[in-house]
């Protein structure tokens, strides 16, 4: 009889605490803004799991705290509790019910993943290159940027590539994360649903400056995006013409910063993963095979396009990715910049 009273009290308390915990979680505002179609099912599943968390939290905490408060010895009582060794049916229930719940959660989770990964064959594509420590976005229209521009309500397939180590592409407002693996192209599909400014941040540790490996992501209306894209195409053409005509150290310096050269090659003589560019041009460079080579234009060009052809002494081969995606004019710009560091 006494026992029955306890059970009724805790049943009521469990339900009450579950509901309160769930609404407390909701009122705090747990998730960042949702800015993609894919984040809808993900947030729905999060919500379901918060409900489960609130319920199971109460299911354990209420009887625990209740026992601590109620089942205390009276003063002077030295006796032990009732000799209850177990209850097979109870054990079966609390094995079977959670088992059913987790299987159901598995089915729901698999279906949820299917929704998140839904493929739109019309998706436009952008190549995303991650490197220590920055991002580069190569558009199929032939231009490259350091800010990712995306049109709203249109699926984009980002083909992720890494030139050096592992990275991970994450925009919290889009929810999904995908690693970049050297030697492999990984895919990231997203349909932005909210115009605004976001940031992609590298989520897989990639060395000392991992924290700063960020790039802006700007979601535009489809009309604005079209205007922006046409501008970029025009700009890229103009730049290419300019570089082809006359290499320029200023443009080379920008490329040095934006293409990732900076991560390994210093311009002040300090030591990095690769040799410094300070005083490099026309110096005599000792190679790993014991010979020496003069750092002329041909050598620098070869080192950019086929980095492992000649390895400088004291540096490891294959440390540098090849930069053959650069246009001839851009390589010339970089060489021009290196000349100024002589």
């Amino acid at each position: 009889m006494q026992n029955k009273k306890h059970f009724i009290i805790i049943t009521v308390l469990i339900l009450l605490v579950s509901v309160l915990t769930y609404y407390a979680l909701l009122s705090i505002g747990l998730m960042p803004v949702s800015a993609s179609i894919q984040s809808k099912p993900i947030d729905w599943l999060f919500d379901l799991e918060f409900k489960l968390i609130a319920f199971f939290f109460s299911l354990i905490m209420v009887p625990l705290v209740y026992s601590l408060v109620v089942f205390r010895r009276k003063d002077g009582d030295e006796t032990d509790g009732p000799h209850i060794e177990g209850h097979t049916n109870l054990e079966l229930i609390w094995t079977a019910v959670p088992l059913i719940i987790v299987i159901a959660l598995g089915v729901i989770g698999a279906d949820n993943l299917k929704q998140v990964l839904a493929v739109d064959p019309q998706a436009h594509q952008v190549k995303v290159v991650g490197f220590q420590w920055g991002w580069r976005f190569e558009y199929p229209e032939g231009f490259t940027t350091n800010t990712l521009y995306l049109p709203v309500d249109q699926q984009v397939l980002l083909n992720l590539e890494s030139t050096d180590v592992l990275h991970s592409f994450w925009v919290p407002e889009f929810r999904i994360k995908q690693d970049l693996v050297p030697g492999q192209i990984t895919e990231y599909r997203i349909t932005p649903s909210l115009i605004g400014n976001y940031k992609v941040r590298c989520a897989e540790i990639c060395g000392t400056s991992h924290s700063y490996m960020e790039a802006p992501v700007i979601v535009l209306s489809q009309a604005d995006y079209a205007v922006w894209r046409d501008d970029q195409i025009k700009l890229a053409k103009e730049q290419e013409l300019a570089s082809a005509g006359k290499p320029d150290a200023g443009r080379g310096q920008v490329l040095y910063q934006e293409s990732g050269c900076k991560a390994c090659h210093s311009v002040d003589g300090s030591k990095g993963v690769g040799p410094t560019w300070d005083g490099l041009f026309e110096s005599n460079v000792p190679l790993a095979d014991g010979t020496t080579v003069a750092a002329d234009e041909a050598f620098v060009r070869e080192s950019i396009l086929m980095p492992s052809a000649k390895v400088v002494k004291g540096y490891s081969p294959n440390a540098m990715p090849n930069f053959s995606y650069l246009k001839d004019g851009q390589v010339n710009d970089i060489i021009e910049y290196i000349k100024t560091l002589k």
Partner: peptide, 12 residues
Amino acid sequence: FSWIATLWQGKL
């Protein structure tokens, strides 16, 4: 669940 059942009706 077994821990909670152990505590239940104990003599703390």
